[in-house]
């Protein structure tokens, strides 16, 4: 019988030591909504499971308009949704976190776990990419910052080296007339996994309704979540009219590289990238224009 040692470090130091000592044989446990399934299915067979939910840095949300957001990697999604600052300043990331599974799942699942699982279909990752989030990683050799769009390498694989732990996300404070949004397509209305996910963050110059800053993240349409750089860049300095949006949608489709699988064909996914990009830009713009009221 395969036995697993369960560790519950109380500090970052302790956690990193444990992870470094056991290398590939250890796997961090946040909410467990991916890991437990992988253990049962036998697709991962770690000897050590390191529960990181008792480490203070990983389980807190801190926000200020001066310093922006620090979101602990193991904060359960439900706490994000229940946090007034999150809802107000990062509605796109909040709605992405609130789309994952049921309330029960959201009470366990975390944004950090969502990213570290390395699935291209993770709902919160395109939203993080749109916000320009940086991942703070701590390991035996010190710490480093990784932009979220560079975090995943392949399905199930990330930049994390043995012994390294994702601690938190750092996201700049939102400017005036800046807002984000996230939309995903699923065949059902809930309890499903993204066939396509698109996150967008826009900053507008309200004097002439031009785009000052734009970032678009794509999910489930490539081996990793994608930052649609060309599509994002194409919007900057433009008025957000139908032509600009269509052009960005076209460039987002070009940035995607989906495959055929049971959740949808590549052809279908490309089409839906265009549809959702148009819809999510409209939604983010709407929010940005109304951001004075927040």
């Amino acid at each position: 019988m395969h036995a697993i040692t369960y560790e519950t470090p109380k500090s970052l130091d302790e956690a990193v030591k444990l992870l470094a000592a056991h290398g590939e044989k250890a796997r961090p446990l946040s909410g467990g909504t991916d890991l437990l399934i992988q253990l049962r299915a036998g697709t991962r067979r770690p000897d050590f499971v390191v529960d990181i939910k008792r480490i203070p840095e990983l389980t807190r949300i801190s926000f200020s308009l001066q310093h922006g957001l620090r979101l602990g990697a193991a904060v359960p999604c439900i706490e994000i949704h229940e946090n007034g600052d999150m809802r107000k300043y990062y509605p796109g990331l909040t709605e992405a976190a609130h789309l994952i599974g049921s309330l029960q799942i959201q009470s366990r699942a975390s944004v950090g776990g969502n990213l570290c699982n390395g699935s291209p279909a993770a709902d919160t990752t395109p939203a993080l990419i749109a916000l320009g989030a940086q991942a703070r990683v701590v390991g035996p050799k010190g710490e480093r910052m990784v932009p979220v769009e560079g975090f995943c390498l392949a399905p199930g694989r990330t930049v994390l080296q043995p012994g390294e732990l994702l601690v938190e996300f750092q996201i700049p404070a939102p400017e005036r007339h800046c807002a984000d949004a996230y939309l995903r397509f699923i065949p059902r209305n809930e309890m499903d996994i993204a066939v396509v996910g698109v996150g967008a963050a826009l900053t507008l110059d309200m004097s002439d309704d031009r785009v000052v800053e734009a970032r678009i993240g794509l999910g489930a349409v490539g081996p990793t979540p994608i930052f649609a750089a060309e599509a994002s860049k194409s919007l900057i300095g433009k008025t957000l009219d139908a032509a600009a949006i269509d052009n960005a949608a076209r460039l987002a489709i070009a940035a995607s590289s989906p495959i055929d699988d049971m959740r949808g064909t590549a052809e279908y996914r490309r089409h839906v990238v265009g549809v959702l990009t148009r819809r999510v830009l409209a939604k983010a713009a709407e929010r940005a224009r109304q951001s004075d009221q927040r």
Binding site: P187, R188, N189, E190, M191, D192, I193, D261, M262, R263
Partner: peptide
């Protein structure tokens, strides 16, 4: 009518062996 189907890959292996990807309607559908 809408979403349920057995999805076999080209090697004849069933890919949707759970209720996430074998999509029965939920009460929200």
């Amino acid at each position: 009518a809408l979403n349920e189907e057995y999805f076999y890959d080209d090697r004849g292996i069933l890919r949707n062996t759970g209720l996430l990807d074998y999509r029965m309607p939920t009460c929200l559908d």
